[in-house]
């Protein structure tokens, strides 16, 4: 029951990341992200319930407040500022993107094999999925042009790491967790400032324009 619930949540998180690869509109990304955070909070709470660790409930609560409510709200503000700029021409088209994402998940399974051999946690089946989510988020950052898409990719990368921590070691000490939250929030705010600056300078949030900065 425990491992099935965790698998369900993790797979859902991976699916929400794949949404970013085939949808083109930023509002869809934001809802995908919010959904992913809810799922992450669910997985964390499940682990907390079965491992009877009250601290994971606290983490799940902070996750919901910070990442499912505050950050999506900030993202919407950004969206209002720039208008809906769809991800028109990503570096890699949708079909290839999905193919690559599949390969990355496969690669994650291969990578996680030695790791899975040495643990006997009930959650260990979710480990390759968490790593796959990590790779897919990285791929989103690398292959998309709009700064806002990249920010969402980064946020999903954060989620992947949080998921890895929850299923791999039943969460890290609360202090570290809080540090990570603060880190993520600060990182997000800095990126927000950058996106505003890029928009102001180049009148677009297409990151490719930054190539012009070299000399």
């Amino acid at each position: 029951m425990f491992s099935q619930l965790v698998m369900l949540g993790s797979s859902g998180m991976l699916l929400t990341a794949l949404i970013v690869l085939w949808r083109k509109h930023v509002p869809a990304y934001i809802s995908a992200y919010r959904l992913q955070v809810w799922l992450l909070a669910g997985v964390t709470a499940t682990v907390g319930y079965f491992a009877s660790d009250w601290r994971l409930f606290a983490v799940a609560f902070v996750l919901v407040v910070l990442k499912a409510i505050a950050i999506p709200a900030l993202l919407r503000t950004m969206l209002r500022r720039f208008g809906a700029q769809p991800e028109v021409r990503p570096y890699v088209n949708t079909e290839t993107s999905l193919l690559i994402a599949g390969l990355l998940v496969l690669f994650a399974y291969v990578l996680a094999r030695p790791w899975m051999a040495v643990t006997d946690l009930p959650t260990r089946d979710a480990l390759p999925i968490a790593m796959g989510l990590l790779f897919v988020s990285l791929f989103v950052i690398v292959s998309r042009r709009k700064a806002i898409t990249q920010v969402i990719g980064f946020l999903m990368l954060e989620n992947a790491i949080a998921l890895l921590a929850a299923v791999g070691t039943y969460g890290v000490p609360l202090l570290v967790e809080l540090g990570v939250f603060l880190d993520a929030l600060m990182g997000f705010l800095v990126m927000q400032i950058f996106v505003y600056q890029i928009h102001e300078t180049f009148d677009t949030i297409d990151v490719e324009q930054l190539t012009r900065l070299r000399h």
Partner: peptide
């Protein structure tokens, strides 16, 4: 090369290689 995406790709590739 001046492309942010390329630099991000380096990071991703380095991470995967490390793993």
């Amino acid at each position: 090369a001046g492309s942010v995406h390329l630099y991000l790709l380096y990071i991703a590739a380095a991470l995967m290689a490390a793993l």
